[in-house]
Every structure is written in C-alpha cells, then in structure tokens.
Design a protein around this nucleic acid. Structure first.
Lengths: 344, 344
DNA sequence: GCACCAATTGACAGCGCTGTCATTTTTAAT
DNA sequence: ATTAAAAATGACAGCGCTGTCAATTGGTGC
C-alpha cells in the first residue's frame, strides 16, 4: 500500500541502506547518488515510517512537550510553535501535561520517556526550573531544551532559551514611573516560577533607579491566576494608603485586578493604572485593554524545538552556535488603555 | 534495557504469542493463563512498544485530533479529555490543527493518515460537519468520531457525539424572555459551524413559543470571535430600536458585546442583558460575569475518545450501545451577572 | 478407554527500517 | 602503472511485536 524504502531503492537502483543514508543526511554519500535518490523519493512521494525507524534505530522521531500550566493561551501558542517545527523536520509531537507537584513526578517522566521512546523534550516552567528534573534527564542522556526566566549572561546556556523577565519588568515599571506613579502595587506570580522573582526584581530595580523607595506593603504574594489577581488587588485597594498603579505579574492577574477595581468602583486608568504581562489575547479583550509586555510564545517555542532537534541530531555546540538562533527574548512593552498619568 | 514481550513470556512460562493475546484482550485464553501472564506483566512493569505493534500489526495505537478552532480554551479542554482516555488505553494522541478552508485539505489529511499510521480520528467542527471529509474517511476505512451540533433523533448516529445546541439556545432565550425581554438581539457564529444555525433556530423557536415575533433586524451575522462580537453589538446598539438583551453565540462574542456596551456607555445588566454560550473560563473573568450555557468539553472529548477506541477495537454497534455511553449533550444554563430584568 | 472436535497454545515469518561489518570503488601517493 | 588508504556502497541481521497456521490440550459422548 504505502511506499517503503525498498521501493525507493529499486527505483533509484541503489541499495536500501544507501537510501537510508540519504534520508538521514549522513555524510559519505556521493552527491550524484544523493540526488538520484532524492529524485526517487520525490517521484514516489516517499516518507519514512517512524515506527520502523524508532524500532530499528536508537533514535526516535517524537519530541515531548512537558508542561503544567493552566494558561490555555500559553499552552496553545507553545504547541503551535513546536508543531510547526516538527512538521518541518518530520518529527512528531507528544504532549504531556502533568502535575509538577506530583510525588512521583520523576517516575512518571521516566515511564513516559522509556515507554514512548522519546527523542528529546521541551520543558517549560516550572519543570524547566526544577533542578531534579534536569538532573534526571541528564542521567538518562535525553536531550532537552528548557525555556527559563533569566538572561544569557554567564550561564552555561547550551540547552536553554532565556526570557529576560527582569528587563521587561523594568521597562514596564519605568513606563508607570514616567507617568508619575510612585505608589505601585505588585502582584506576584507563583513562587515555583522563576519568572515571578525576576519580574519582582525588575520592578524593584526600576523603582530604585528612579529614587523611589520600594515599599514591601505594596508587594502581594499570589499565583498566576485570575482569582489571585482579584484577591491581591482587593487587598491593595482596601488600604488607606492605596497604590495609584498595579503591576500584575501576568495578564490573567491583571484581568483579575481590573475585575476587583470595578467591584470597588475604582476607574481605570483615571484612578488606577494596571499593567499585565504576556500580551495574551485577552489583554485585548478586557475593558480597558491592557498595557502589557509582549512575549512571542509561538516563536519562542519554534526556537526551542529547533534547538532541540539540532541537539537530537547530534550537532555540536559550535555548530548550533553558528546557526545564530535567537535564544534570548526580552518581552516588549505594549501600551494600551489601562495605564495613564498618576492622579495626584 | 526495557522489558519486552519475550521477557514477560519467559517469566510467565508461556509463549510470546500468548502474552500478545493477553495484552490484546483476545478471547480464547484460559483464565488461569490470563492471570499468570498479567501477574508477570505487573511484576516486570511491562508495557508494549507501540512502534513495534504498529509496525507488525495492521492496527496502530495513535489517534488523531483534527481541529481548526481559534478558541484556546476549547482546544485545551478537548485535548485534555482525549489525553485522559488515551492514557487509560495506552494510546497516543496526535494533534493536528489545520485550516478547514485549505484547498488541498483532503490531500493533507490523506497524507497525515497514511504517513502517521493513525488508528482513527476525532473530528470537531467544522471538520466534523463537512460531508467530504466524512466521505473520504469512510473510503479510507478509517474509524472516526464526529462531535457535531444536533440531536440524536432519527439519525444514524453510530459515529457521532451530539451537542444539542438548539435546546440549549432555547433555554437561554427562555431565560431572557422570563426576565421580560422581548427585543433580543442575536449575534450569529460562523456559518461553517452547524452550531451557529442550531443556536439561531433554538432562539427563534423560543421566541415563537412565547408569542414574540422574530425580528430579522435583530439577527446579526458574524463569526465566533471577540472582534465580531464587538462589531455586531455596536451595530445593534447604534440603532434607534435597540434590543434590551443580546444573545451572543459564544462567550468570546459575548465578551466582545460587553466591550462594545462599555464603549457606548450602556450598563450591564441594567440597560442591557448579555448572554454567552460555552461557559469557558473567561465567562467568569469578564465584568460582569457572563450568564451562559455550560458545555462540558473535556467530558465530551472523553466520550468521543472512548467511542473511537471502541470502534478501533472492532466492537460492534450493539456492543458499544451496551456501554451506555453518553452520546448526546445539552449545554445547561448558568445564570451569572450579565442578565437582569428588561428595563421597560 | 477411545475417537472426535473445539479450545487453547506455540512456532515462525516478516512489518520497514537502522546498525554493523564486509565489499567495492575512488582517490592520492609513489 | 601500482599500491595503500579512504570513501562509498551493500548484505544482512534483528528491533518488538502481530498474523498465520500448525500443534497440542482438554472435554465430550459412546
């Protein structure tokens, strides 16, 4: 029914093994042979059978995406980015949501990897920031790429994509300061995410650089959820010494803060400015639209998949370096309608 | 490295083939043998290698999820539901977003199915409602399950999960009528979705049953998007003869309508009631929270996967019938804060 | 106890590919 | 031209499983 490597071999007048070499891009195939085989591949519309490949060989052609994130927009963007690279390189994507707090997480991952014959994995926070997970994967000698919060400087970064949350948070805060805000509340994301700390520190750094003394009262613990945004904002706005602006650690929290503000009759942006982070679709669907920092998740995922596939194919760090992939991202300020001048 | 069927055979003192029979749940295995083998399977923590299975056999152990839907919440819910069944039956899930308007859609799907050795597919709208897609899959003899809008009555339904949009739309409309609304605007979803028509007809049926004459002026064409909701609501609210309520065909459109209302200074629910459809997370994250119809997407997906796997395993329609799966869903009204009594 | 049949189990090939190692061809060096 | 080394290609086994078909077992009626 379907075309096999043997059909191609016959068509091209070479051995099966040579076809195998060609489709695996191995060296030591004469150029003329290479082209002859490729022509047959095209002519017969041949595509290798991944089951057979992973059964026969040591490699597989599936990459895993391991995540624990309630943010549907984030997950979809990541997925789409990963998929687009997978399609290009004829890999398959295995998605694996799982709970990062699960007691037998390591066992679960081990099983996943062994049973599904995965060639490598892309990790997003919080998994990408858990040392035990990285250690385990190293021990299993499984290629992986981590998307983490931080900057490239001074880190052995061969397997990381960095999101410079610090810098982005700094510029968001600067934006508020430029509008005359000095009392800026900060709603923290979940502590298991490094981005949470990075964003907080970026905020604090901007305050200090602008001679505004950070006030611990204005920093509220939370997690990256709508409800947590509502709760945090209520707390801040219920005080006598209210902030004139709120920096929510992501858009969902910002939407929560918006909700709380409405509930308490505080008008945005006249009485209170609110900023989010991520530029997810719903930062455009709130009223007013959110000022936020744009994080190009799909593109980030593409880079991650690309890097992972390079590693799976055994390319050296130098070879990968030469590709000049973008490995470090700084989300950029997007000004919309939820920020304005401080009222006093 | 990993446990194979041979290890289990040795451990249990039977032939490889008998183990194969046991793990495939074939009949004609003595009960004692079955249990002996299962004990070894457990003892060695054996799980069959899907690559080998699909290479050797005619079946594969991957199901496909084909969709074209910009709604991240919907896709994630579906995915999670499908995944949970896949994990239970040791299937893998291949996600395949693609464009339903693509010129070479059929070829794309054909390639997908042939090259990825897929055992069956779950289709969501609009694919599930495209006759040519169903015809093609039939011709390829590939099991599939379609999630479609409609009711079970009088249809040969062996491969469908029905969402009774008509009934749900009726009860949403009834809710508005009960609050005294007579001028109810309706924002249509995209025409390529049957749900769009079904919801419209449910709305009209409720009006008629309550002696309210449907007014074509109040029905606005659109698609299931935020922007389309904004546009449609603006149109309705810009008229002299304004509706006192708006039925948006999904939550996203309802959020758009909410946005438009704010833009035009119309207060919700005092001057205008708005309802959505789907009960996606963000119906709880708007201000005010949306009255909507709850559609249990994750559960629906689980049923779909279950049905598909039954079909893949060659169960007869009677056998499937006996399982008493839920194959028909009527989204239920959830009253929140975006609806209230008509003002006049 | 014996023949007979159905139920149960096993032996073995082969799915499409890659890894290993042997063989042939080309290139470079004398 | 001759030879050694390197490059290119091929033959073949076997990855872990299932399908086919053959062999064995147990149960029945006489």
């Amino acid at each position: 029914m379907s075309v096999t490597i043997n059909d191609v071999a016959k068509h091209a007048g070479v051995s099966m093994k040579t076809v195998s070499r060609v489709i695996n891009n191995e060296s030591s195939v004469r150029k003329a042979t290479y082209e002859k085989v490729m022509a047959s591949v095209k002519a017969l519309n041949y595509r290798p059978n991944n089951s057979a490949r992973s059964l026969a060989g040591t490699r597989s052609y599936t990459i895993g995406f391991i995540y624990d994130n309630p943010n549907a927009y984030y997950v979809i963007d990541m997925q789409n980015g990963l998929l687009s690279e997978c399609r290009q390189y004829n890999y398959e994507l295995l998605i694996h949501p799982c709970n990062h707090q699960s007691a037998d997480l390591e066992e679960e991952l081990r099983n996943l990897i062994n049973h599904s014959r995965i060639a490598g994995v892309v990790l997003t926070p919080p998994f990408s920031e858990m040392p035990n997970v990285a250690k385990m994967l190293d021990k299993m000698e499984l290629p992986f790429v981590r998307i983490i919060s931080g900057s490239e400087k001074g880190k052995k970064a061969s397997s990381c994509i960095f999101i410079n949350d610090h810098e982005a948070a700094y510029s968001i805060t600067q934006h508020l300061l430029d509008h005359g805000h000095k009392k800026i509340g900060f709603l923290c994301g979940g502590k298991e995410h490094h981005s949470s700390t990075e964003r907080l520190e970026g905020y604090q750094a901007a305050l200090v650089d602008n001679q505004v003394r950070p006030n611990k009262q204005f920093v509220i613990e939370g997690e990256y959820s709508f409800d947590s945004g509502v709760k945090g904002a209520k707390k801040l706005l219920g005080r006598k010494n209210k902030p004139t602006a709120i920096f929510a650690s992501n858009d969902e929290m910002a939407a929560g803060a918006l909700f709380a503000a409405r509930l308490m009759g505080v008008s945005i942006p006249e009485e209170l400015s609110i900023v989010g982070f991520e530029d997810s679709p719903f930062s455009r669907q709130t009223w007013p639209k959110l000022t936020t920092a744009h994080q190009p998740n799909k593109f980030i995922a593409q880079q991650a998949a690309n890097l992972l596939i390079s590693k799976i194919q055994g390319q050296s760090n130098e070879q990968i370096e030469e590709k000049n992939m973008i490995r470090s991202f700084s989300p950029e300020l997007v000004v919309r309608d939820s920020t304005g001048p401080a009222k006093d």
